[in-house]
Design a protein around this nucleic acid. Sequence first.
RNA 1: GGGCGCUUAGCUCAGUCUGGUCAGAGCACCACGCUUACACCGUGGGGGUCGCUGGUUCGAGCCCAGCAGCGCCCACCA
Length: 835
Amino acid sequence: MAGLQDRTRFEPAEVEPRIVEAWLEAKVHHPEPKGTPAENFSIAIPPPNVTGALHMGHALNGSIQDCLVRWARMSGPPTRRVKWILGTDHAGIATQTQVEKLLLSEGTSRHELGREAFVERVWEWRGRYGGEIVEQYKRLGATCDYDDERFTMDPLYIAAVQKVFVELYEQGLIYRDNYLVNWDPGSGSAISDLEVEQREGVRDTLFEIRYSDEIVVATVRPETMLADTAVAVHPGDERYADLVGSTVTLPLVGRELPIIADDYVDREFGTGALKITPGHDPNDFEIGRKHGLPEISVIGEDGRMTEAAGRFAGLTVDEAREAVVAALDAEGRIVSRSEHVHTVPFSHRSGQRIEPLISLQWFMRMEPLAEPALAAVRDGRVRIHPESQSRRYVHWLENIRPWCISRQLWWGHQLPVWYRGDETYVGQEPPQGEGWERDPDVLDTWFSSALWPFATLGWPEDTPELRAFYPTDVLVTARDILFLWVARMVMLGLRFTEDVPFQDVYVHSVIQAPDGRRMSKSLGTGIDPLEEIDRHGADAVRFGLLAMSSTQDVRFSAEKIRQGQALANKLFNAARLILMTVGPDEQEAAPRPRAVEDRWIVSRLQSAKVDAGRRIAQFDFAKLSLGLYDFVYGELCDWYLELIKGREADAELSATLLHVLRETLLLAHPVTPFVTEEIWAEMPGTDGLLAQARRAEVDGSLHDAEAEAQITELIEAVRAIRAWREETGVRDVLVARADGFAGTREALARMARLEWGAPEGDLLDLGGIFVAAPEIDAAERERKRGEERARLQAEIDRAQARLANEGFVAKAPEAVVAAEREKLAALQAQLEELG
RNA sequence: GGGCGCUUAGCUCAGUCUGGUCAGAGCACCACGCUUACACCGUGGGGGUCGCUGGUUCGAGCCCAGCAGCGCCCACCA
């Protein structure tokens, strides 16, 4: 307590780093791998990119998980082990890009270094900078298992990834195929649909090109016509009915194109005739496959026209467009040019325009995996919160498409695939014999992420960690990676562990900038959580983020952070008051106090515990944290601590105060771990760290309806008195509502003395609603009574009017009508009493 | 084009599932107060026809329909 006496403020910057050290040293985060998953509690962190720095999304995500993990650690049987699995993701493209930038600044490039040296550089880079984000999680107070950190490129993890690849290949679920992929010229790699940003409002020139007298097509990409293999019209379009089945000659090239009918074609658009370019357009690719059309590539991975482009070979795409248009113009085939505003795909990673190309890639068949993953959600083995998100999950899985899993990068899990001539070998060990060459591609980063909940625990080995902690309990994630990651974890978890990887998925909000825009570095709208922590403390940031979280997207609210800071400070000062009142040698005892205000706060505390438990179970972190705030402010500090001021600190009061403080700290700790830990250390009779303490079960017998009713009445009376004093400006006066205060008389008198300076023993009991002290003149007293009478009469009139409504009496539930009658009677009695 | 969601105090949001005691919170604002925890404080106060229009009901912020505005997701017409 000496430690708190002189500190009137909670100073997070001084306190928090020291407490982090204490937690780390005590290894509160590191459980023994014992017991069963049913007894234990585990969460796998969504692995942050090694390149990453803690952003607001991580801070919210981490605050939620730490709240759950700390709550779990403090609940349940003493044998419960709680593990928050920690690790980072190698993040293929992001990391490779980062290191390539570094090389560029050194005047070299990955191509100059060669693959082996480049990968070595990435490892080196990761060793130097890769740990930063983990340190930042510590600063947030996150109790992940820092003593068991994983990386998606650990040797064991690599083995797990390869095993999955090989087995899926052997089961026919992984295959190689020509496919139209989203080629990102920026990274020189295929990227997934999910990494493509559809940018709206792009202006291009739309050309109408005459292929023949009857056929005019429209396109914004004339250069791709060199790869046309058909022209399509709508089956019901009379204009072209005669032509379907015939051919048209492709200008500049001379190839005969079949004219086909497909209801994909919109007959309202342009001329109703659509050029089909399976090699360079996703829709055309689908139509081409459907009709068995040839697939021609005239654009190469280097962004230049290929040999197939004939005389245009070697030109860049832009040059080719000009040249093709010029050539068409020369033949008089350009019917019109117009501006066309449309949506164009860009790479999320490099920002470059996507070039759809046909290339040989590796794919995963998803339907056989999707089916069980759908069933798991439908039958409740996996519960997605909020419910609305599960509809998105289901919809996505029902419309699942093959997953292109190969990437043309150097940093990542290289495919366990070798070729020799026409032979292909797939296996975890390199093939025997001469002349084999390994496939240079690596796997999509999400492939390894999909194994995260079990590969981190040592799968495929039967490890103690796996036996103790898999399946995990909850997955906490943001909405944007529900498909990219969550669904795939469920699919591969079910496939390889025969179990769901987690029981609950909590999908939290995305925090937007205060003005409603995305928080992003490039927009300059980002807010650095670490700066907020430095300024306001980690407790404040955690509280603020939890309080603003919801199932909707929310705007960042600096006020909520400040509210959290205020709460931390309030707790600190409440503890000071309690500890100064108690004295150093007092002990906590069983909480069975006699004084009404003691019984009240003990009762309220039980309610607060019940509420908090329910809100944790519902993943309602906003109500959890705001409910905590309301308890600490609205009940503990505003009323209880005020009511006990002036009371003699006997054993009963001391015992109650210590009980209340201890329970409050246990309750608040998952939200504001630092300040509660700091106070805990100053409390008499506490051993060890609060982070390792256990909360007592809710004790229903401590609920005290009588005390709650009495204190509620007292609160109303005090409020009325205060308002009246403010209103009238009367100062040195004691005003009390004396009737019905048998139990709280003493408390009220004490409060009156302290708050309003009433002399000892001067509490008047005149039986009315308000009783003024002698110095209030009769006229004033009468005026006050008049006001009160008018208020009561108005309420009585309202109640009478309702009861006079036949519809109400006849149709409202009996209880509602009865309550209204009781209310009326009570009001009338009050009016009577007032005289 | 399909789907989801939002519109409540100056601002950010609860409350809508389960219609009646629900018109709330924090911040901001105004007034008062250095009362032996806290001025990162306390007390009191002002402020909203709950987007609009209709409907259901004895009764609607809450249920239904339509309209207006905003946001997100999915798929994208060359």
